[in-house]
Amino acid sequence: MDTARLVSLIAAVITTGWMSGLFYGFSVSVMPGLKRSGDRTVIETMQRINVAILNGWFLLGYLGALLFTGLALGLHVPSEGRDLLPPLIGAFVTYALAMAVTARVNIPLNNALEQAGPPDRLDDASAAAVRQAFEGRWVRANAWRAVLCTAALGFLAWALILR
């Protein structure tokens, strides 16, 4: 049982770290780089990213972070490792909040961007409107995801230290 607790905690750290890094990377490089690009470039690039990111590695990190954190939490409840419960609960809650931001803001914006169609078929005004409806809200929500995932990772590091 002790091995399962440790392995689930390490898996939670790794997958949460992946997600924290992904959202941080978008916040500090991808979106600032795209901000300097034209409307059609932003639309096309984000449409392509939104398709490419739906792969097994992303899903392992995105779903795995919640599942492994929940597993680590569940395995520590009936054990002598109850002092790990506060940081594990903190990690689970903050990561779940990041997922809620994704579901309520980023995914609907990604879907609306896809609904706009190919950017080369948009006139200048339409492309500008699509970008304006997408970019600012998506960037702010992604920053929240980065902060929440980083907090979850910090909680998990705290749990590892306590262990």
Score class of each variant (00 low, 15 high):
residue 54 L to K: 12
residue 55 N to W: 10
residue 55 N to V: 08
residue 58 F to Q: 00
residue 58 F to Y: 06
residue 59 L to W: 14
residue 59 L to Y: 09
residue 59 L to A: 14
residue 60 L to S: 07
residue 61 G to S: 06
residue 61 G to W: 04
residue 63 L to S: 08
residue 63 L to N: 07
residue 64 G to N: 03
residue 64 G to L: 06
residue 66 L to D: 01
residue 66 L to N: 02
residue 68 F to N: 03
residue 69 T to P: 00
residue 71 L to D: 00
residue 72 A to P: 04
residue 74 G to S: 09
residue 75 L to E: 03
residue 76 H to A: 14
residue 76 H to L: 08
residue 76 H to E: 15
residue 77 V to T: 09
residue 77 V to K: 06
residue 77 V to E: 12
residue 78 P to H: 06
residue 80 E to N: 11
residue 80 E to Q: 10
residue 81 G to S: 14
residue 82 R to N: 12
residue 82 R to A: 15
residue 82 R to S: 14
residue 83 D to N: 14
residue 85 L to N: 09
residue 85 L to I: 14
residue 87 P to Q: 05
residue 87 P to R: 02
residue 87 P to M: 05
residue 89 I to R: 03
residue 92 F to G: 02
residue 92 F to M: 11
residue 92 F to Y: 10
residue 94 T to E: 02
residue 94 T to D: 03
residue 95 Y to P: 05
residue 96 A to F: 14
residue 96 A to L: 15
residue 96 A to E: 12
residue 98 A to T: 01
residue 98 A to K: 00
residue 98 A to M: 13
residue 98 A to S: 11
residue 98 A to G: 07
residue 100 A to K: 01
residue 100 A to F: 14
residue 101 V to N: 02
residue 102 T to R: 03
residue 102 T to E: 12
residue 102 T to S: 14
residue 103 A to Y: 10
residue 104 R to T: 13
residue 105 V to K: 09
residue 106 N to Q: 08
residue 106 N to K: 06
residue 108 P to S: 07
residue 108 P to Y: 09
residue 108 P to G: 06
residue 108 P to W: 10
residue 109 L to T: 01
residue 109 L to I: 02
residue 111 N to G: 02
residue 111 N to F: 10
residue 111 N to I: 13
residue 114 E to A: 15
residue 114 E to Y: 05
residue 114 E to T: 13
residue 115 Q to W: 09
residue 116 A to G: 11
residue 116 A to Q: 10
residue 117 G to K: 08
residue 118 P to N: 13
residue 119 P to D: 07
residue 120 D to R: 12
residue 122 L to Q: 13
residue 122 L to I: 11
residue 126 S to E: 14
residue 127 A to M: 08
residue 131 R to T: 13
residue 131 R to P: 10
residue 132 Q to C: 07
residue 132 Q to F: 14
residue 133 A to M: 08
residue 133 A to E: 10
residue 134 F to N: 13
residue 135 E to Q: 11
residue 136 G to V: 05
residue 136 G to D: 12
residue 136 G to C: 00
residue 136 G to Y: 04
residue 137 R to P: 10
residue 137 R to K: 15
residue 139 V to A: 09
residue 141 A to W: 08
residue 142 N to D: 09
residue 143 A to M: 10
residue 146 A to L: 05
residue 147 V to R: 12
residue 150 T to F: 03
residue 152 A to P: 04
residue 152 A to S: 12
residue 152 A to G: 05
residue 153 L to Q: 07
residue 154 G to Y: 02
residue 154 G to W: 04
residue 155 F to V: 00
residue 156 L to V: 06
residue 158 W to G: 02
residue 158 W to P: 00
residue 159 A to C: 09
residue 159 A to S: 09
residue 160 L to M: 15
residue 162 L to Y: 01
residue 162 L to V: 07
residue 162 L to K: 11
residue 163 R to C: 10
residue 163 R to Y: 15
